[in-house]
Design a protein around this nucleic acid. Sequence first.
DNA 1: CGGCGAGTTGCAGCGTACAT
DNA 2: ATGTACGCTGCAACTCGCCG
Length: 463
Amino acid sequence: MWYYNGARNKGIIKMLTSMQRKAGLWITGAFRTSPTSGVKALAGLLPIPHLLKRMADRAAARFVTLTKTHPLRALVTEEYHGKALLHRISLACLTPRQREKVKGPLVDNTLVCPQISEPIAPVPPQAQPGLRLINRFKEQIGISNVDNVPVIDIRHVELRDYLIDWFANPNAAIVAVDASQPVVAPGQPGRAATAAAVIQRGRARIQLSAVSTGILQALLLDDINEIDILTDLSTAIDRILDCSAHSGQQYSIAACDALKSWLESNPNNIIRIYYTPSDRRWGYLPIHAEAHELACGLQVPGNVGGGKMTIDKFKKQADASALKAWTNQFESPSYRGHNFLALGTLDAGELIPTTVKGGSWMQSAKEAIDQGGNSIYSNALFACMCQAILNHAPIGSYYERFNFTDEPRSCSCGTSLESRDHIIKRCMLYKEPRVVRRLDQLINFLKWNPTAFAFKNAPTGVG
DNA sequence: CGGCGAGTTGCAGCGTACAT
DNA sequence: ATGTACGCTGCAACTCGCCG
C-alpha cells in the first residue's frame, strides 16, 4: 500500500536497507565498516529498492485475476472496472489533468493490466469445490503434491519397475514431459500406441502446456485405460488439474474438460502423475531419443496463447529487470566498494550478483571441496573469503586505513605493510597457489592458508 | 468549490561519533 | 584516513480544517 510509483518512502527504504545490511553482515561475517552493497552481493541479498519494485510488480499482475465484480475494480478506470459499479471516487471519475497527478497502487495496477494478455477466468466452474476432477474422480487420479489425494513419490529403483509394467500394458499411455521439450512416448512393442507432442522451446509456460497437450494426445489413442505422466516440474503437477485462476489456466481447463468425459466413461480409467526429478528422469526410457526425434518433427495444433504475455511471464520479467538493475549498479566501483576484489568464474566471466541459492559467492564457497572430494565449506571460510574480497579484514592495511592504534601494520614475514595484495601474491608465509583471478582460486588459496585472513588471536566468531 | 493558513511529513545536507 | 549511524536543521510537498 505504501510502495508505488511516486510514493515518498525513502525513509522507510532507508530503515529497511539498514536492517538488511545487518542481516548481510551477519551472513557474511564482514565488518561493520564494510560497504553495504558489496556485503549484500556476497550474501545474495537483493537490495531493498529492487526487492520492493519486484514485489510490487508481481503483485500488480494479480489484478487481472480479480473477479469482474471485485470491490477493488470499483475504484479503477473505465477499462478495468469490469462489472463492478464505479465508485464516486474511482480513477474513472477524475479529469485528465487530475489523473496525471494522482498516484497510488491502483494506478500502478491499471498500468500493468494492458501489458498482460493472458485470459484468466477468476472462478471457472471446473474449479468449484465438488466439481473439480480431483474431487469427483478421487479414486481414479493419483497425483503428487496435492492435498487429499494419494501422493506418489517415485523412487529411483521403482521407476524401472513401473516402466516395465507400463510397457507390458497395451492399454497404458506414458506421457513423458521434459523441461524444454515434451514428449509423449509410445505405449510399447506389442501394441505401439504412438503419440508425440512438442511445443516451442524456451517458452515460460511450456511445462503446463506440454502436460496438457500430452494428456490430450494420450486421450486420442484407442482403448486407453491408464495414463501415466512423468514430469520434473512440481508446479505443473500442482496446476494441471487445478482450474482456479493461475497462469496457464487455459491449459488446465482444456485438460480437465477432456479428462472429465474419459474418467466418467469408465470407472476403471485411471490417470497418475509422477514427480520425477531430473537426475532420475529419462535414463530408463530407451525410446526417449526416438520419441524425441518424432516429437521434433511434429507441429502441435494445441499451442494455445503462444506469444501472449502471461502472468508468469510478467513475473519473470519483473524478476529479471530487478536483477538487471542490481547487476548494472554492481558494475560501478563506487557502488560495490572501491576495494571490492573483482573475480571471475570458472567460465571466465566476471562474477555478478544473484539471489539464487544464496548468491554467486555463497554457491562457489559451498561447492569447495578438498582432494578427497569432501566439502571444506565452513562459516569461517566464507567469512574469511568475504573479508578478503571486501578488503575489510584483520590485516595491517585495514588497521592502517582505519587508524587502529593497538594493532600491527606489518606482516609477520617482516614486510612493513600487510596488505591483501601482499598476502595473496608475495608473502613467504603462505603456500601456493598464488594466482588468484577467479573465485575458486581464492577459495583454494584459503583452503591451503586458512589463517591468511583470519583473526590471529580471536578464534570465536567475527562480525 | 477553491483559497488560505497551520500543522505534518519526507528528505537532503551537514556535522559528529565510532569502529575489529 | 574510510564507511556508516545518527541527530539537527531547513525546505518542499502534502493534509486538514476553516471560510467565503
